[in-house]
Write a protein that binds this DNA or RNA. Structure first.
Lengths: 224, 224
DNA sequence: GGCAAAGCGTTACGCTTCATAACGTGCCTT
DNA sequence: AAGGCACGTTATGAAGCGTAACGCTTTGCC
């Protein structure tokens, strides 16, 4: 056997496990620094120092700064994806309106709890970084968006769609997404600072309702 | 007179004019480089070189890199402001629906024609920069947003508001803005790349109509 | 016209960061 | 027990931001 100790731990050798752990630790450290001092002030050097290593060691795990950023973006998409799944599952499958609204709220809540990840995905002050057009971020992004698609597919399948403003369900969904995303983005970037939290919550429920109707649903907004 | 040649040119001395011209040239050069290579890859050094100067010379005009960025952001807001004004004025004052829709379209068109400025304002890949909370960008941003406010004020004044989803006209306007902005942002950041230009145009008209109804208007969407 | 002052741009320098090169060290296989 | 490989270190290079010190030009005053 050339592969070392292929024991009972998922077919990965001890080396591979240690390596994977280090990769995770690096990403955690990076994200933590981003939270602390902003993605703008993230220095490759500091990541290493914050975990008791010297800067060049990181190059064993990431080819350069951009590759690390790409990994962070992809992870952020996954995090969003998980959050949306979790939120959706809190509502029974037959309550379509409820699932839609819950997803909208989950989207916003995730953005509020993970501002740095939200910023990484949707382009806020990030250093000299541009996502590679063919990189893993694209796949991860597509995966995250499939939640929305499934949501509407579910709805369409059951013939419960009302009269969305456009005939194509996928297009209607994009508009609904844009409606929710606009609110979340502006809020995350501080453009709603004139309103207090309660007012924003109230307005968001209204906005989510607008999105729902755009998607062809007709939720009872006052439930939210 | 201590002020030198205060001739007929607006009360500014020749020195002051030359200085202002240089400032403008620097900003133009910076923006041009941003368009070429992306805001991420903007180097202070390159700005100077691109206009035949040496890097330290720029410090006569801007204290540091951030101050230049702040100026660019403020200018971007002004540019947006001007564009919105111009667009709105193409529709007669008594056509409120028309003015609203024109403003929405103007917002999107400006974003499409000035992607780098849009990115500067709404947070896309910009180097290690965070806008100062008390800087000129805030004032410029407020100015730009007053267009929207005026628009709704106009409408409310004439008692033409329908039944917006929230009682406060200003709040309804924010939601309308979020609706339009969500579409524009996602489109600008390439999240609608699956759709061709024509499909996007069609969808945007629908989205602007949604926004209008949110603001309490009831436009004939098929006009757009 | 001559002179002092201020503005402007240059070269020279220091500091920080990203990234590479060359070198040691410990684990893991055989 | 020995060799290979992954890992981490120190040493070094290159590039960018920002400061300091210097010289030229313009400007305003006699």
């Amino acid at each position: 056997m050339t592969d070392g100790a292929t024991d009972g731990s998922g077919g990965r050798s001890r080396r591979e496990r240690l390596r994977a752990d280090t990769v995770e630790e690096i990403k955690r450290a990076a994200l933590s620094l981003i939270v602390e001092r902003g993605a703008a002030n993230l220095r490759f050097t500091d990541i290493a120092r914050s975990m008791g290593m010297t800067p060049p060691a990181l190059y064993r795990y990431f080819a350069d700064r951009d590759e690390l950023f790409t990994a962070l973006v992809a992870d952020s998409y996954d995090s969003l994806s998980d959050a949306l799944t979790a939120t959706r599952e809190t509502v029974p499958p037959d309550d379509l309106d409820g699932r839609f609204m819950a997803t909208c709220i989950g989207y916003r809540t995730w953005a509020q709890r993970n501002p740095e990840r939200f910023a990484l995905i949707f382009g806020a002050p990030v250093p000299g970084y541009a996502a590679p057009p063919d990189g893993p971020t694209v796949a991860a992004g597509r995966r995250a968006m499939e939640h929305m698609v499934e949501l509407v597919a579910d709805t369409a399948e059951r013939g419960r769609l009302g009269s969305p403003p456009v005939p194509d369900a996928a297009e209607a969904l994009m508009l609904a997404w844009a409606t929710v995303h606009g609110f979340v983005t502006l809020e995350a970037h501080g453009h709603f600072h004139a309103l207090d939290q309660q007012a924003r919550d109230r307005l968001f429920a209204v906005q989510a309702g607008v999105a729902a109707r755009t998607a062809g649903l007709s939720p009872a907004v006052d439930r939210w």
